[in-house]
Write a protein that binds this DNA or RNA. Structure first.
Length: 470
DNA sequence: ATAGGGTTAG
C-alpha cells in the first residue's frame, strides 16, 4: 500500500522507459500504453507483451477517469481478445458498471467506429466481446447495430452473434424482432440452433403465449434441431404459469411416453410440483412426487424444499403431514434427512413462525442431525435480532462443534460480538473474537472501540495483541 | 442452457 503511494508520486515522464518497465506493475504499464495516443492502440498494447489477468484488467479499468472511459472500454475489448484469456461474466459486470455502459450506450458505438477509423485488427472474437458487453448492459439496439457492422470489417455474422441479439430483444419483450431476426438467418445461410429456439420459446412462454412456443418447438425438428427435455420443460413451465394445470399434466404424460431424450427429469417434475404448491393444491403436488418416484426419478433438494414449504404453509395437519413427507423423501433417496430438516427450518423462518423454527433447529442438534449453512445463519441472525446474544453464542458454539461449513455473514458475527460486549459477556465475546480472528474475519462494525474496551476487561493479553496487529 | 434459498472472489 505504502509502496503504491510512493510510486504514484513519481511522475512517469521523468523515468526512462527501461527503468519504468522494471519498476512498475503490469497494470501501470498497460495504463501508460493506453495513454500514448498512437494511431493503433491495439498494436501498442500487444507490443507490451503483457498478458493481463483478471486482477490486472480490473486495475487498468478502474484507473480510468470518466473522460477516459472510451479508452478503458477499448482496452477491455483488446484484453478480451488475447489468446488464452476469456473475460468471466463477473468481469463483464464489473467493466459495465465501472464504465457506466448502460447509461452511455454511445461509448460502444464510438469505440467500434474508432477501431474502424484506426484500421485496427478486428476479428470475430473482437465482435463477440463487444456483443457480450451489449448483452451484459442489456442494450438490444446497440447489439443490433454491432451486428450490422460485421460486413464493414469484412466479417461474416455467425449463429452465436445472432443468438445474442435475439436473446436481448426477447428479454426486452420484443418478440416480433426476435422472430424477424431468426427468419433473417435463413437469408444469410445460417441455421437457427437449439439456443435460438430456446431463447424464443422462453420469450413466448414468459409472455403467456404457450401456443406460439409449442409451434416453434414443432418447427425445431423439421430444421434438424432436437427437442430435448430442457425445451419441453420450458414449455411446461409456461403452461403452468398460465395456470393450465390440467394441460400441464397432459404434457407431462406425453413426455413420459415419448422418446428417451425427452423424458421428464427432476427439474421437470419439480416445476409442476411448485406450480401446484403455488396454487395451494398441495395434495396434487404430493401426487406428482409419487408419480416421479414411480417413473424412477429421485427428488432432489429443490423438490424437497418446495414441497416442505408447501406442506408447512398449507398442510391440513401441520407437523404430522411434514413428518410423513420427510419420511417419504428420505425413503425415495436423493435427499438426506438433514436437508429436509434444514429446509423446514428455513421455511418456518420465512413464514415468520420463529418459535417452531427454533424448536425444530434445537431438535436437530439434540438428535445429531447436522443443519446446513443457510439454516444456521438464518437462526443465528434471528437470535441477534431478538437480542438473545448469549443464546446465540451457545448455538454458535454447538454449530461449530458439529462442523457445519459456516456461511454466517460477517455482519452477524460483528453484531453478536458487540451484543455480547454490551450485555457484559466479555468471556464469551473474547472467545468469539478469537474464533473470528482464526477465520481471518475483519471486525466490520462502527463500534470497534467499544468492543476493544469490553475485551480489555478479560485481561486476555494474547487476544489484545492479535487484535492490535490484525 | 433447465428450478430454489444466503454469501465470497475473480
Amino acid at each position: 500500500m505504502l509502496l503504491n503511494l510512493i510510486r504514484r508520486r513519481i511522475s512517469p515522464s521523468k523515468l526512462s522507459p527501461l527503468r519504468f518497465s522494471t519498476t512498475s506493475s503490469p497494470a501501470e504499464r498497460l495504463y501508460n500504453h493506453l495513454q500514448s495516443s498512437t494511431p493503433n492502440l491495439e498494436k501498442e498494447l500487444t507490443s507490451s507483451n503483457i498478458k493481463p489477468n483478471a486482477t490486472c484488467i480490473n486495475e487498468v479499468i478502474t484507473r480510468c477517469k470518466p473522460n477516459q472511459f472510451q479508452l478503458g472500454l477499448r482496452f477491455f475489448i483488446w484484453a478480451g481478445t488475447q489468446s488464452g484469456h476469456r473475460h468471466s461474466p463477473y468481469m463483464y459486470t464489473k467493466a459495465c458498471d465501472f464504465l457506466k455502459i448502460r447509461a452511455n450506450p454511445d461509448l460502444i458505438k464510438n469505440v467500434v467506429e474508432s477501431l474502424k477509423k484506426d484500421e485496427s485488427f478486428v476479428s470475430v472474437k473482437t465482435m463477440r466481446v463487444v456483443l457480450s458487453i451489449c448483452s451484459q448492459a442489456k442494450l438490444a439496439d446497440v447489439a443490433l447495430w454491432v451486428l450490422r457492422k460485421f460486413p464493414e470489417f469484412g466479417l461474416c455474422v455467425d449463429t452465436v452473434a445472432y443468438n445474442v441479439v435475439i436473446r436481448l430483444f426477447v428479454d426486452e419483450g420484443d418478440l416480433s424482432m426476435g422472430v424477424k431476426l431468426m427468419e433473417e438467418m435463413d437469408g444469410v445461410d445460417l441455421c437457427p440452433d437449439v439456443m435460438t429456439y430456446t431463447a424464443l420459446i422462453n420469450g413466448f412462454c414468459n409472455a403467456g403465449e404457450v401456443e406460439e412456443a409449442w409451434e416453434l418447438a414443432k418447427g425445431m425438428s423439421k430444421k434438424g434441431c432436437v427437442v430435448n427435455t430442457v425445451t419441453y420443460s420450458r414449455i411446461l413451465e409456461g403452461v403452468c404459469k398460465c395456470g393450465e394445470m390440467e394441460r400441464a399434466l397432459e404434457l407431462l404424460t406425453e413426455m413420459e411416453k415419448g422418446e428417451e431424450g425427452t423424458s421428464p427429469n427432476a427439474v421437470t417434475y419439480t416445476l409442476v410440483i411448485q406450480a401446484f404448491v403455488e396454487k395451494k393444491r398441495v395434495g396434487e403436488a404430493l401426487m406428482v412426487l409419487d408419480r416421479m418416484r414411480e417413473r424412477g426419478c429421485s427428488p432432489n433438494r429443490v423438490t424437497a424444499s418446495v414441497l416442505i414449504q408447501g406442506v408447512l404453509e398449507n398442510g391440513e395437519e401441520g407437523v404430522k403431514d411434514l413428518s410423513k413427507l420427510v419420511d417419504k423423501l428420505v425413503k425415495f433417496g436423493g435427499v438426506p434427512l438433514s436437508e429436509c430438516f434444514s429446509s423446514a427450518v428455513v421455511s418456518l423462518i420465512r413464514l415468520k413462525r420463529w418459535e417452531e423454527a427454533e424448536k425444530m433447529f434445537r431438535l436437530m442438534l439434540v438428535r445429531g442431525i447436522r443443519p446446513d449453512g443457510l439454516a444456521c445463519s438464518l437462526v443465528l441472525r434471528e437470535l441477534c435480532l431478538l437480542e438473545r446474544y448469549h443464546d446465540c453464542f451457545l448455538l454458535y458454539e454447538e454449530i461449530e462443534k458439529a462442523g457445519v461449513v459456516s456461511t454466517i455473514d460477517t455482519d452477524v458475527h460483528s453484531v453478536l460480538l458487540l451484543g455480547l460486549c454490551e450485555q457484559g459477556r466479555s468471556w464469551e465475546a473474547a472467545k468469539l473474537a478469537k474464533s473470528m480472528l482464526d477465520k481471518k474475519m475483519r471486525l466490520k462494525v462502527s463500534q470497534v472501540e467499544k468492543i476493544i474496551e469490553a475485551l480489555k476487561k478479560t485481561g486476555d493479553e494474547d487476544l489484545m495483541r492479535r487484535l492490535s496487529t490484525s
